[in-house]
Amino acid sequence: MSILWAIIAGLVIGLLAKLVIPGRQPIPLWLTILLGVVGGLIGNALAGAFGVADTDGIDWVRHFFQIGAAALLILVVTPLWSRRGA
């Protein structure tokens, strides 16, 4: 069941990351989900390092870290994905 939740979280985080990046990112949905999952893991690690992983209520800072990490990954991977056929 945790794999299913990781996929759902990766989808949400990846799509939110694509929303904050200006322009179009021509990567497939499966890659968006994968980068969202990896971004979520990186964001959790960063939140733990800064001591904001577990707070009372909604962990907004942790979510910002997750979306930011996924956005950076998408920014790095999109040009590589676009050039793969060249």
Rank of each mutant, 00 (worst) to 15 (best):
G36A: 04
G51M: 10
L73Q: 00
I21Y: 04
Q25A: 11
A70C: 08
R83V: 07
L41R: 02
I33F: 04
L19M: 15
G85Q: 11
I7G: 06
A70Q: 06
L15T: 13
V37T: 07
A17D: 03
T32V: 15
I8W: 02
G48V: 08
L16M: 11
V12Y: 01
V61C: 04
I58H: 08
V76R: 11
V76W: 15
Q66S: 15
L46E: 09
V38A: 12
L4Y: 14
L19P: 00
V20C: 10
V12D: 01
L11M: 08
A53W: 02
V52T: 14
I67T: 13
H63G: 07
W60N: 06
L34T: 14
W60E: 02
A69K: 03
D56W: 10
L15S: 11
G40Q: 05
G39A: 08
I27K: 01
A71F: 10
I42M: 09
V37K: 00
L75Q: 04
I27R: 01
P22C: 05
L16W: 11
A45Q: 13
A9P: 01
L41T: 04
K18R: 11
I58F: 14
D56N: 12
W5D: 10
G43W: 00
T55E: 14
L4D: 05
A17C: 11
P22F: 04
A47M: 07
G36R: 00
F65Y: 14
L31V: 08
N44H: 13
P79A: 10
G57Q: 06
L34I: 15
I27Q: 00
L80F: 09
G43V: 02
R62K: 15
D56M: 09
L75C: 05
F65N: 03
L4K: 13
V38N: 03
A70Y: 01
F64M: 09
V12A: 11
K18H: 05
L73D: 00
Q66M: 14
R24S: 08
T55A: 15
Q66H: 07
V77M: 15
L19F: 14
R62E: 02
R24M: 09
V76C: 11
I21H: 08
I3R: 08
S2P: 02
I27D: 00
A9D: 09
G51E: 07
I67Q: 03
F65V: 10
R24L: 10
V12G: 01
A9S: 14
L31N: 00
I74K: 04
I67D: 05
V12Q: 03
I74N: 01
S2K: 10
R62C: 03
